[in-house]
Design a protein around this nucleic acid. Structure first.
Lengths: 330, 330
DNA sequence: CGTTTTCCGGAAAACGTTTTCCGGAAAAGG
DNA sequence: CCTTTTCCGGAAAACGTTTTCCGGAAAACG
């Protein structure tokens, strides 16, 4: 490996001087010597060792991103958002797929801390708690930003799930639907609970009574949407005419199941999803859904983290706006 | 930050001894002292500084992954594959979105090298060349594995695009189609060229003559598939009855355009895609396509890289099998 | 009992930087 | 011409580890 020492030798100066031109330090360096050093660097193909730098400066210019699974279509957008601003700010991104496993999460947190990342961005419900537990003693915690709702007092970037879900239901109501079913996420998910609350609030606006048998427990995966349809009482006229699936994957399952039973979407049953994953505009009929600004979520989280890192004050909660994308399924 | 020195002080030993228990070095340490050290570590919440370790050992246990865009549905599977085996082997993953830009690629390569990654995995055609050029003098090159075809002599993990494309066409031919159009990728892409070659070979099996006007230039994005349809001569009976889109995104564009013109897929025109991105099974009709084992591609690339890193011999080219997924669009 | 092992622990160098401190020489000021 | 700056460069400490080398004490051996 070619080091600063080699450069110094070739240029006939001390390593201090090389370091100075490397970081164009305020300490003056004769322009002629600078030239010599620069061409020595060029000739040797030298590039500085970030590890050594990191050790000395105690700064690594690296951050970690922990998420459940990059394979889930919800996350790539977030990752891209984070990475884009990280890159712009000169930060390098370490990616961790924790699969919502407490164990894997804690393991990753440890690895990230060992690698002295300057900050961590978490996403994927519930995870944040695990991360805090034990791993972070209050004093030496790594700067952390969470995407999504969570109980801790870490700064977070989120979306108003209850409001968005309410709006989705109100939209359905405004189309005359009165018997609206919903497929939820897992009970453990704050997100799922919020969306359910929004659904309830939506019905409440019109003073409609709630039917427990219209609320089907799902798990945010396609299959659970598909199966949910079978658990619903009468569908179509004289029955349920609209289904609010609490994420797009389940909405797609719902649509498939509906079509398989010969029902027309949206004529017999309207369907609205949540997330606006890329898939949503490609299914037939195109899915009406609540769009979450994933890219912006990622960008914003990284911006907040960056503020934290330079010691600036940051908003403790940032809410980004969702948008109801009306397409063909309603 | 709590260091090995603090642990040593608390346990009343030298840092050498602490280091020894940390790495359970072969050098013997009295079990009683070991206990003392272990509890000191526990009490202080010490964890080793990977940066310092990396500097001393000149090993970072980190690898870089450079790809065009994690937002492209083709890549998350690869990333997951890479990360899973990297994690298993104790490697940490740095993610880089290079957007197929030569400049951005070279910049990332530099960052990765500065950060002393032990290896790099490239994917996203053309990129590999940029990476080599100038950035890697032969002697101090970072171990590199490429996913996909490329001209350099770096080890690679790939799929036989020409064979797969030929099979796709032969499938169409076996269904009686004789006028088969294709939408290609950009001319600069090796992948696109291979798939085109496969298309030609497929037609050649039956001695069919090639019609240049059936070959439409695309760019692997949805829109170009959509637009391609307008450029085709007569469609349906007495015209083109099948379209081979060289990736799924374009196939979806093709299907949309076809349906918009009132044509039925596959009754009027059959469509086959390439890649089998998650989307493919959710569009209507479900897309028949050539499945690329993305996850395995990622896993295998990381395994090859790992071999390289321990100095083992590796196969210079690894070919993974594709699979023709026949669904509803053919 | 003297000699050789074995067991255990510490001191110090090294990894590649940045930065602080110091000092000589030239330039500027009087 | 002497003093004070300014300009430029080097030496060395420090960052947190691992590892090599060394040495004392106890144990084993003869």
């Amino acid at each position: 490996m070619v080091t600063i020492k080699d450069v110094a030798r070739l240029a006939g100066v001390s390593i201090s001087t090389v370091s100075r031109v490397l970081n164009n330090n305020s300490h003056p360096v004769n322009s002629e010597t600078k030239e010599r050093i620069l061409s020595a660097i060029e000739e040797l193909g030298f590039y500085p060792n970030a590890i050594a730098r990191g050790l000395q400066a105690n700064k690594t210019k690296t951050i970690g991103l922990i998420l459940p699974d990059i394979g889930n279509p919800y996350y790539p957008g977030i990752v891209r958002g984070v990475e884009d601003v990280a890159h712009e700010l000169g930060y390098t991104l370490i990616l961790c797929n924790a699969d919502r496993s407490r164990e894997r999460t804690q393991e990753y947190v440890r690895v990230l801390r060992e690698n002295r990342v300057e900050g961590i961005i978490f996403t994927g419900g519930g995870i944040a708690q695990d991360a805090q537990q034990g791993n972070f003693s209050e004093k030496d915690a790594v700067a952390t930003v969470v995407i999504g709702k969570h109980w801790s007092n870490l700064p977070s970037v989120q979306v108003d799930n209850v409001k968005a879900a309410r709006e989705a239901c109100e939209h359905l109501l405004s189309f005359g639907h009165r018997q609206i079913a919903t497929v939820t996420g897992p009970e453990s998910s704050t997100t799922a609970r919020d969306r359910l609350e929004g659904y309830r609030q939506g019905l409440a606006t019109l003073g409609l009574t709630e039917h427990p048998e219209w609320i089907i427990l799902g798990d945010f995966e396609v299959d659970s949407g598909y199966r949910a349809v079978a658990q619903l009482p009468r569908l179509g006229r004289e029955g349920i005419t609209a289904i609010f699936a609490q994420n797009d994957l389940m909405a797609i399952g719902v649509i498939n199941a509906l079509q398989q039973r010969g029902m027309k979407v949206p004529d017999d049953v309207a369907v609205v999803g949540f997330d606006d994953i890329p898939l949503a505009s490609f299914v037939t009929p195109k899915l009406s859904t609540v769009a979450i600004p994933v890219y912006e979520l990622g960008m914003t989280a990284m911006k907040v983290l960056a503020k934290l890192l330079v010691g600036q004050e940051t908003e403790s909660v940032t809410i980004l706006e969702t948008k109801l994308e009306l397409r063909e399924s309603t």
